[in-house]
Amino acid sequence: MHGSLWVFGYGSLIWDPGFPVAEQRIGRVAGWHRSFCMRSIHHRGTAVNPGLVLALDRADGASCQGIAFRVVPGAEAEALAGLRERELVSSAYLETVLRVETEAGPVEALTYVIDPDHVQYCGRLDLDEQARIIARAHGGRGPNRDYLWATAAHLAELGISDPDLEWLARRVRSLC
């Protein structure tokens, strides 16, 4: 990757990037959708009681809206090291570069997508099962429900609609 380092956030990176941000743009990636398709055994659950975290899951005709962040120049190496420590903790994510379409033009952004062959992949869970898991799980970074609620709230603040996430947020509130 030459020039600026861009990172695409679609889950917790939206509200907690963990690196200094020089610029941010709402953007969309094609061919992927935001999904609670990864069992969390570290941050939002445990090996005994896994939670669920968001990942980008490949799907024909799908798209995902999120935030493209440009890392402050000079902070790229530190940002990349921090992202890898956070996102690659169990190797369920694959580090890739995706084209993100923004109103100011496209950018190539570092993105973490799910490895569908990884043992933590669970892309076939229905929404109600996801809600039950999220309502009870707790990991090193806190309750799974807080992760869901923070992501849903920040997407709403940005004007990004995600009907499945909105339904899950309401359903988990009713379960807690």
Score class of each variant (00 low, 15 high):
69 F>Q: 01
38 M>T: 13
92 A>Y: 01
38 M>I: 14
111 T>S: 10
73 P>N: 11
153 A>P: 06
54 L>I: 13
169 A>H: 07
107 V>N: 01
82 G>N: 12
140 G>M: 12
72 V>W: 10
85 E>I: 10
74 G>K: 09
74 G>R: 05
166 E>M: 09
45 G>M: 07
96 T>I: 12
37 C>Q: 00
11 G>Y: 03
40 S>Q: 07
163 P>I: 07
150 A>L: 14
105 G>R: 07
25 R>E: 06
71 V>E: 05
82 G>S: 14
33 H>A: 09
166 E>S: 15
118 H>Y: 09
171 R>Y: 11
171 R>C: 07
70 R>Y: 05
26 I>M: 10
94 L>P: 01
85 E>Q: 14
22 A>T: 01
148 L>H: 07
151 T>K: 01
153 A>W: 00
131 A>K: 05
175 L>V: 13
123 G>I: 09
162 D>C: 04
45 G>I: 07
160 I>F: 06
115 D>W: 02
110 L>R: 06
57 D>C: 10
15 W>K: 11
6 W>G: 04
62 A>M: 10
76 E>P: 10
20 P>W: 08
152 A>Y: 03
32 W>N: 03
54 L>P: 05
20 P>T: 12
4 S>E: 11
85 E>H: 13
123 G>Q: 04
80 L>Y: 04
85 E>M: 12
74 G>C: 11
37 C>I: 04
15 W>P: 10
136 R>T: 15
64 C>E: 00
15 W>L: 09
100 V>K: 00
136 R>L: 14
27 G>S: 03
43 H>C: 05
54 L>H: 02
85 E>A: 15
29 V>E: 04
84 R>I: 10
176 C>D: 14
167 W>P: 00
83 L>F: 11
74 G>V: 03
105 G>F: 02
161 S>G: 04
49 N>A: 15
101 E>S: 11
43 H>N: 06
159 G>P: 03
158 L>A: 12
164 D>T: 15
129 E>A: 15
135 A>I: 11
36 F>K: 02
97 V>Y: 14
72 V>E: 15
11 G>I: 04
34 R>C: 03
88 L>C: 13
124 R>S: 15
170 R>L: 10
81 A>Q: 13
162 D>N: 13
102 T>N: 06
56 L>A: 03
121 Y>N: 11
25 R>N: 08
55 A>C: 15
74 G>W: 04
10 Y>H: 10
96 T>Y: 01
14 I>Y: 01
122 C>Y: 00
153 A>M: 06
127 L>M: 04
15 W>G: 09
81 A>G: 12
100 V>C: 01
70 R>G: 12
70 R>A: 14
156 A>K: 13
121 Y>P: 12
23 E>R: 13
176 C>N: 11
74 G>A: 13
154 H>S: 11
6 W>L: 01
136 R>S: 13
101 E>A: 12
165 L>G: 02
138 H>R: 15
78 E>Y: 05
148 L>T: 03
111 T>M: 01
114 I>F: 02
48 V>N: 12
35 S>M: 08
